[in-house]
Structures are given as C-alpha cells and as structure tokens.
C-alpha cells in the first residue's frame, strides 16, 4: 500500500479579538493510501473543512497553519512550498470539490471553459485539446449530452449536474488525491447517491485516494474504507468502517450513532447528544467532550491520547484503558 498523503499534528490557528490565537484544528493526524477512501466525519464546527483547506494551503487569512504541523504528499513537504511550486500541487496532485456547486462555480464562464482552464493550468495542451479533455471529463462524470453542455453556464444546470462539473474540474489535471468537502450536502437525497456513485467509480478507475468529508454517517457506510471522527478540532476515533459501525467506542461516536434515525427497526425515541458543540475559541479543558459525555469520570479532566481499543481502531478516550486490546 503506497502512502500518498501523510498528515501529522496539523494545527490551524486564527487570531482572537484579544490577541491570542485559537485552534479550530488542533493536532490532527491521519494518512491516506493509494486507492483508499478515508471519511472524515464530524458536525459543523469540528474543524474538518479547515483541515481539508489546509492540505492545499487554502486556509483563509488571517488563519494559518501552525509550525509543527506536517503535511506530506508522497515525498513533498507541502508546508514548505511557495509560489509556483505550491501552485503546481493544487489541482495536479490534489483535487478538491466543495460543498455548494452553485457558489463554487464562476457564474460568468461556461463549464467547458472552467474545466479546460484546469487542464491547461497544469498540462501542456492546446486550447482545442483542453476542450476535448473537458468533453471527455464531462462524459466520465456522467453528464448526459456532454457536447451540448460544454458551453453551458453554471446557472443553466441542475444542482446534481453542477456538482458533477465540479468533480470534472477537480479531476482535470489528473490528481492522485481527491478531497471532497461535503460533496452531497447541498443536493437532494436522490442525487446524493448518484454523486457518491460517480465518485466511487472514478476512484476505482483512476486509483485515486479520496478524502471524504461529511457530517452524514449514512453516506459513509459502504463508501469509505476507513473513518475518522472529529470533534472540537481533534480526531476522537478512527477505525476501518465496518469495525467502527460494529463497535463505536468513543462516547461521541456512540452518541452520533444513537441520534441517527433509522427507517428499519422499531421506532424509538431519538437520543440527541446533550449540550452544544464548543466554540473553537473556548474549548473545554481536559477531554473536550467531557461536558456532554454521559460516561465522563475523574480522569476526563486530563486530555486523553489516542489509545487502542481494537484492531486498527483507536479512540481519544481514557475509557480505552479499561478495554485496551479487545478481541
């Protein structure tokens, strides 16, 4: 398994009005192997989007990636790149698709133009060749009548088609990694499944690694190889998907599962997680989930490390010590 992306101790900070800096992303580590899909799951405000932006050094100022973080793309240290070198990895080695395709596409250029632009930015092709590439990509992402759509403007397409266009743009320069930040959140349910299917097919066809960022556990099952759950700027649990679904161990993860309504099975009451997500400017001390955790105990006052709870399964919780190394 070739490792294509390695992130270690990623910290993103922003200045607070009082001059201090706070860290919406606080020590995140994960890696991606070629051809695998890692799902980064969490509610809004947990820092998952910022994490993905950091990979491309697109954290909006005045935010910045703090020293001590490591982002390696194969052999390349992303954080040390500047100018032209940085530009070359964007789109070419990592492609990114964003949440809302309506606002993520420039309204004054045709979709064909925008895709071709992505091709020409990195590959030495002529305008005509880029246009052909764009056509081929539109076909690949499953847009009906691609030739007709090439000169369409974003506002003339439906939400699902716009998202497919975004995928085409992201793939234009043949990246090894695709980062999908909430790719289906802004779409109707029926369209969501289609888009995820497209992403899957493309991944398999090109052998890409995919970082799927979402708050929806439902789309994770069956799509991701591994899952990392984020809370309050940190990863609180990570495991292969089946393992996580079978044995959700962190109280937050358990809470997430419990609060998802199920169509099948007897109708129970939904048990939401009490309390609210903490603001990055004021994370609780010790274990950040402690104020909302039904299983909090005295050791929760210390910030927990990531501890093993099962095969390739770790969680950031002191409760792991009781269970450590289960069958």
């Amino acid at each position: 398994m070739t490792r294509v992306l390695h992130v270690r101790d990623l910290r993103v900070s922003f200045p607070a009005p009082d001059g201090h800096r706070f860290h919406p992303v606080d020590g995140v580590s994960f890696s991606l192997d070629r051809g695998e899909t890692l799902a980064l799951v969490g509610e809004s405000g947990c820092g998952k989007s910022l994490t993905s932006l950091a990979l491309l050094r697109l954290v909006p100022p005045p935010g910045r990636v703090d020293a001590g973080s490591t982002i390696r793309l194969g052999d390349t240290d992303v954080l040390s790149l500047e100018g032209e070198a940085l530009r070359r990895i964007r789109g070419r080695r990592i492609g990114m698709i964003f949440q809302d395709p309506m606002t993520s596409l420039n309204p004054v250029f045709t979709v064909g133009d925008q895709i071709a632009e992505g091709v020409r930015a990195h590959l030495p092709v002529t305008k005509a060749q880029a246009r052909e590439r764009a056509l081929a990509l539109l076909q690949e992402v499953g847009i009906p009548d691609p030739a007709g759509r090439l000169d369409a403007y974003p506002h003339q397409l439906s939400g699902g088609m716009r998202q497919r266009v975004m995928i085409a743009i992201a793939l234009a320069a043949e990246p090894e990694i695709l980062v999908a930040d909430e790719p289906t959140t802004a779409l109707d349910v029926t369209v969501q499944a289609q888009i995820l299917e497209v992403l899957d097919q493309l991944r398999r066809a090109r052998g890409m690694a995919v970082l799927l960022i979402t708050h929806d556990l439902g789309i994770v099952a069956g799509r991701a190889d591994r899952v990392a759950v984020m809370y309050a700027g940190q990863i609180v649990e990570e495991a292969p998907t089946l393992e996580l679904f079978a044995h959700p161990s962190h109280p937050y993860t358990q809470g997430l599962f419990a609060s998802v309504p199920r169509i099948s099975g007897p109708v129970e009451r939904l048990t939401p997680i009490g309390g609210t997500v903490p603001s990055p400017t004021a994370f609780p001390s010790g274990c950040r989930f402690r104020p909302r955790c039904p299983q909090a105990f005295d050791k929760s006052e210390l910030p927990p490390d990531l501890l093993a709870v099962g095969p390739d399964h770790r969680m950031r919780c002191w409760l792991a010590e009781g269970r450590g190394g289960r069958d």
Partner: peptide
C-alpha cells in the same frame, strides 16, 4: 466568494 477558492484550488496563478 467560494468560486475564488475553487480557482485557487485548481492551481491557477
């Protein structure tokens, strides 16, 4: 606006 982020993410100068 978000489409500016998209443009940067494409690797445009």
């Amino acid at each position: 606006l978000p489409y500016i982020v998209t443009a940067r993410a494409k690797g445009l100068p």
